[in-house]
Amino acid sequence: MPPIIQGILNTSISEGLVYAFIAIGVFLTLRVLAFPDLTVDGSFVVGGSIVAVMIAGGYNPFLATIVAFVGGLACGAITGLLNTKLRIPALLAGILMMVGLYSVNLLIMGRPNIPLLRSVTMFDSIASWFGMARSTILVIIVFAVIAFIVFMLLNWFLRTEIGLALRASGDNEQMVRSLGVDTDKNILLGVAISNGLVALAGALVAQNQQFSDVNMGIGMIVMGLAAVIIGEALIHPRGVTSMLLAAFVGTFLYRLFITIAFRLGLAPGNLKLITALLVIIAMAIPYIQKKLRHEWMPPAARW
């Protein structure tokens, strides 16, 4: 395989594996719980900040990664509480969290960014177990193992009694309550897991790129959405497994698309615009199709 293609593939695979957690998070909130959650842009950085501060402070990188995950869980739980207990609309609750978390991340890191060049990340630790140097292949293998574990855990959890109730809460909350389930608790749990996964992605990305930056979360929600839309278009997920697979496939293709675009000379600064346009087009297509067929479509929700 020509090295350039190999390079493109390596990048898309490793990024596809780790950013897929964000797509799964968006799937969980938006599609499963019908809870459009914008906390994501903030909780991604929470993962990065926690891991960077701890690793730079000499803590075990595995412990740091777990703490980052828990930090994300906490962010999601707060968003869930704002919505269920204080009755703040989901979208606004997420925006409030995203804005507030910007300052929180500065507080955690104490400055806008922390380099990890000379610190021992998870990848360095694992490489040293096997007496090797850190390499792209190693990173891909580590990501693949973690992605596999997350995939299997969610694939199991969403089929359990609690997982089923969680999924049903997004479909028909009234029914779920009338069957004796505390739907508030379910929404809280779902949004927490979603943001935990996003923070996990943030923690892994920070260790892979060897720095954490307070701005690294900007547009993550839109990227996750783009991946979800691509995955859905290709896989038409019907069940739990295909939904999770769609998140991985969608993220991989999205990363492949932008990696190639970069190689062809796309300026990195234009990435967010391209991603936003991609999502706008994908979301507008159903309406335009209906319009062409002279079908009626209700106005979009404003909340």
């Binding site: 959890f157 089929r159 359990t160 009694e161 997982g163 089923l164 069957l179 004796g180």
Partner: peptide
């Protein structure tokens, strides 16, 4: 979902 009305839901297969 319905068969577990009023029972505590756990981590068993649904």
């Amino acid at each position: 979902m319905a068969v577990l009305r009023g029972q505590t839901r756990g981590l068993r297969a649904a």
